[in-house]
Simulated scan of single mutants.
Amino acid sequence: MTRFRLGTRGSPLALTQAGMVRDALCAAHGWSDDAVEIVVIRTTGDRVQDRALAEIGGKALWTKELDRALHDSDIDCAVHSMKDVETIRPATLKIAAMLPRADVRDRLIGAETLADLRPGAVVGTSSPRRRAQMLRLRPDLEIVLIRGNVDTRLGRVASGEMDATLLAAAGLDRLGRDDGHAIPTDVMLPAPAQGAVGVEVLAGSAAGEIVAAIDHHDTSACVLTERALLARLGADCHSPVAALASLAGETLTLRAELIAEDGACDVAGSIEGTVDDDLGTALAEDLLARAPASVRRLFSA
């Protein structure tokens, strides 16, 4: 029997997410578990752990090996954490489905709130967004680079090497971990597409129809709106940007903020409409028009 092949990174979280996609496909198509093969692809982002992604190639470090495997027909689809997928993708590929979105919030590890951290506390993150947001709220913090999987990051806080770190609540939940304290989105707006798992295929392939059966419409609508905002901003891995779209009935609401790298200034806004409106582009243009120069220079639009 020919098995349907899911390509994924090999981290515990990536494998858990690939298992979620496998289970969804089996449920949708009445397949047995052995009808789907999970194929582990080691990416450059997994191999290089001592530098920020923005310094060594950006989000493509998580995707280029999976892209190659799709183009070479080594896999039928690739499973991604959508917040790690670069905004502009090859025209030969298509995001065919997204699973229902999980908790979008960040969790603070090491203290109950940012206000509880000691003066001058050392906080580890590799995210320009989290760095800028934390410095906006607590300019006294010392922000240091931290990479690695969930256990590595938790271990560096537990050892006392740093006072705190931030991790996505969705990833912790998927791993069955209850570490840390969730930060409300009105305190720290999440990264665009945070909490969403996407499945990518070759455009026009038979795999696209197979995968489309597990697409969660509301998640796709919200995440694609957030990604449209990124595209209009010309955002990259150096750009501190946060965004969150939500759908209530027919009303789609998008909130977003752009922040200076040092957190000294920011611009925020929101917009409402329907899924047929190009809210991402509209809000991006509004934010850029109102952004101070120190923020606007971080985007290539």
Rank of each mutant, 00 (worst) to 15 (best):
L167Y: 05
A206H: 07
G10E: 07
D46A: 15
A111G: 10
V79P: 05
L13T: 05
D215C: 12
R5S: 12
G171F: 03
G273F: 08
P128R: 10
T165W: 04
I143D: 00
E112M: 10
H71W: 10
S159Y: 04
D84V: 02
A121M: 04
T165H: 07
I271S: 04
R9N: 13
V21L: 03
A212F: 02
R227D: 13
A182I: 14
S32Y: 00
L258S: 06
C26E: 02
G120Q: 10
P139T: 06
E257D: 13
G45Y: 03
P12G: 08
T253S: 14
E86V: 10
V157M: 09
L15N: 04
D218K: 12
V223D: 02
V85T: 14
D67F: 11
I210G: 01
D67W: 14
S220Y: 06
P119R: 11
D23I: 02
L175M: 14
E272V: 13
T87W: 13
G176C: 08
K64C: 09
M188F: 09
A248R: 09
A260D: 13
T281W: 02
I183R: 00
K59L: 15
A115L: 07
T225M: 04
A260Q: 01
A196W: 03
L224Y: 01
A228K: 12
D262C: 12
I95N: 00
H71C: 09
S300M: 10
L252A: 11
A96I: 09
R22G: 02
G120N: 12
I88Q: 15
S270H: 12
L135C: 01
A213N: 03
P100A: 05
L70H: 05
C265K: 00
G180Y: 05
A168P: 15
A91M: 05
A97Y: 01
V36M: 05
E161D: 11
D278T: 04
L229M: 10
E261G: 12
